[in-house]
Computed example of a mutant assay.
Amino acid sequence: MCSWQGEMLCFTVDFALGFTCFDSKTKNVLWRFKFSQLKGSSDDGKTRVKLLFQNLDTKQIETKELEFQDLTVVLHCIHSFIAAKVASVDPVFIDSQSIARKHTYSH
């Protein structure tokens, strides 16, 4: 749950879909962006986070400012998803993990 433009909404981070914000009552999607569209972020260290997304059609940057009761948990979640997404598309990372596992199991 989060607050956006004075409304109580649901914010989800999904490995396949990316970031989605939808109305908690109607379940209507207000906006959705892929991980690759996230171009920057900042937070106030308390409750608010600004996410900067690039619109694929217009190439313009859209700012989404959300407010959360537990910002730290949300930021850790976002960072974990981004790290996992990067790792999943980086063949060098995948290869290094595969080699590390083989090395670990051989001892």
Rank of each mutant, 00 (worst) to 15 (best):
R48D: 11
F81I: 03
Y105A: 07
K85Y: 14
S36A: 14
H79L: 05
F93W: 05
K27E: 15
F15T: 03
K50V: 11
R32L: 02
S3L: 13
S24E: 14
D14F: 01
F22C: 06
F15C: 00
A84K: 14
K85L: 02
F68T: 05
D43Q: 11
T47H: 11
K34Y: 04
S88M: 14
A100V: 01
D57I: 00
F15V: 03
V89T: 10
C21G: 13
S41H: 10
S42C: 12
I78P: 00
H76K: 14
S96T: 13
L51T: 09
I99P: 01
F81N: 07
V89F: 10
E65N: 11
V86T: 08
T63W: 00
R101C: 01
D57Y: 03
K39E: 12
A100D: 14
F68G: 11
K102N: 07
V29M: 09
L9W: 00
T20P: 01
M8D: 12
F15Q: 09
E62F: 04
D43F: 05
G18E: 02
Q69D: 09
F35G: 05
S88I: 02
F81K: 07
Q5S: 12
K85G: 01
V29C: 11
F15R: 05
R32C: 13
H107D: 09
K27D: 11
F81R: 08
C77L: 10
H76Q: 15
H79I: 03
H107S: 10
P91Q: 08
K59S: 08
H107G: 10
L75P: 00
W31A: 08
K50A: 10
T58V: 01
M8H: 05
L75S: 02
L51A: 06
I99Q: 14
F19W: 08
V13E: 02
K25I: 03
V89N: 08
C10V: 11
S88K: 14
T104E: 12
H103D: 08
T26F: 01
Q69A: 09
S88H: 14
D57T: 07
V73H: 11
E7M: 13
L30G: 06
T26Y: 03
M8W: 04
Q60K: 15
S3D: 04
F68W: 08
S42Q: 09
V92Q: 15
W31G: 02
I61T: 14
S80A: 10
S106H: 08
R101K: 15
N28M: 12
K46W: 09
V92L: 12
Q69M: 12
T72G: 09
F22W: 00
S88W: 03
D57K: 13
A83V: 03
G6W: 06
F33P: 04
P91A: 08
V74W: 04
D43V: 06
V73A: 13
D95H: 12
S3C: 12
K39L: 00
S80V: 02
E67A: 12
V73I: 12
K39R: 15
K25P: 02
S24K: 15
Q97C: 13
A87P: 01
V49W: 02
